[in-house]
């Protein structure tokens, strides 16, 4: 059976450039993950910060 020339040209077009092949190539570029962070100094800074901040602000208030 013979195909219509137009139809055939269209088929060939998609043969030359299968879009799926191109899809395989186009790396989608994702943004980086964000991880939650902890620090061994967190605990200490919280322990000591309170008094430190207090003394600084009270000094400033005294001035």
């Amino acid at each position: 059976s013979q195909l219509l020339p137009g139809r055939q040209a269209a088929d060939l077009q998609s043969k030359v450039v299968p879009s799926k092949q191109i899809l395989h190539s186009d790396n989608m570029e994702m943004e980086p993950e964000t991880m939650e962070t902890k620090s061994v100094t967190d605990y200490f800074s919280k322990l000591h910060m309170g008094s430190l901040v207090y003394s600084c602000t009270s000094k400033r208030k005294n001035k």
């Binding site: 993950e33 991880m35 939650e36 962070t37 902890k38 620090s39 061994v40 967190d42 605990y43």
Partner: peptide, 18 residues
């Protein structure tokens, strides 16, 4: 013996390996 410090170490080890 400070479990909060240990938790921070585990967390950072996890992130480093990630």
């Amino acid at each position: 013996e400070d479990l909060k410090t240990l938790s921070a170490i585990y967390s950072q080890l996890g992130n480093a390996y990630f």
